[in-house]
Each structure stands twice: as C-alpha cells, then as structure tokens.
Amino acid sequence: MSTTETVAGAAGEASQKGMPQLNFATWPNQVFWLLVALVIIYIVLTKIAMPRIASVLAEREGRISGDLAAAEELKSKAKAAEKAYNLALEQARVEAGKIILATKAEIQKDLNAAMADADAQISAKAAESEKRIAEIRAGAVQAVSEVARETAGALVVALGGTADDAAIEAAVAARLKG
C-alpha cells in the first residue's frame, strides 16, 4: 500500500487510490450490514413470502390435478356411457331379432290355425252340401218314381184297365233301375 500512497497524488488526494474492496478497515461495517440485510431477507422470505407462494402453488397443483382427474373421470364416464349405449343397441338389436322371430312364429301359428279352421269349415260345409245333394238326389228319385207310378196308374186307367198298384210299382221300379 505504501507505493499507492505516494502515487496517489497524481489523481488528487480527494479520491483515495487503491481498491476500495481491499480497504480492510471497511470490512467489519460491510459484514455487519450484509448480515443484517440477509437476516431481514431471510425472515421476509421464509416467514411470509415463501409459505404463501408454496400454498398458492400447492393449491394450483391440487386444482390442476383435480381438474385433470375430473376430466379423466368424465372421459371414462363418457366411455362407459358409450359402451353402455353400444351394449344397449346390441341388446336391442338382438331383442328385435328375437321379437321378429317370435312374431313370425306366432303369425305362422295363427295362420296355420286359421288355415286348419278354414279347412275344417270348408270340409264340413262340403260334407253338408254333399249330404244335401244326396238328399235332393234321393228326393228327386222318389219324386220321379211317384210321378211315374201315378202317370202309369192314370195311363192304365185311361186305357181301360184296372190299376193294380203292386204291379205298377214293380214295373216302375224295374224301369227306374233300368
């Protein structure tokens, strides 16, 4: 330092030459005030600012992860709903198929029954008609034989003979058979 003092005159004695950093006389002062400043900053940061920031960050973290979880849940819900919908659709389709089949079978059965019924009615009606026809035919035959007998009797009388009922009848029957 001694050289510095002698050279210092060149730049005027107002400014102390040398590095102020190495002026050890100021060190205790600097260290003291630095420590004071650091302690104040430490207290401000650790007691007030940092817990606040940490809580805000934690809250945001929680909020974001909560929102994400909710979104995830909603997504899975939507997926489940879609799945359920698809399942329901599938089931409905199967059900519809079944119903169609059942309906078809039912209709077939009804149709069969109706057909059978109709057949039975038709055959019954046919039988009845047949009977009626047979009756009519029988009635007709009888009527013809009656008319023939009466005509034969009348003819016999008209021709001057005597009508023998038994003989007429036999003759008509023989003719009719003929």
């Binding site: 104040i40 900053i41 401000v44 940061l45 600012a49 940092m50 606040r52 920031i53 809580s55 805000v56």
Partner: peptide
C-alpha cells in the same frame, strides 16, 4: 443493501399477497 432488502420485500410481499 437497504434498498435491496426493500425491493425484495416489496416484490415478494406484493407478489405473494393475491394468492390467486
């Protein structure tokens, strides 16, 4: 040093106050 402390304190206290 004091100005540094004040600036840090103001920034940190104002910045952490809203908690939004």
């Amino acid at each position: 040093l004091g100005i540094t402390v004040v600036v840090i304190s103001i920034l940190m206290l104002i910045g952490s106050a809203p908690r939004k």
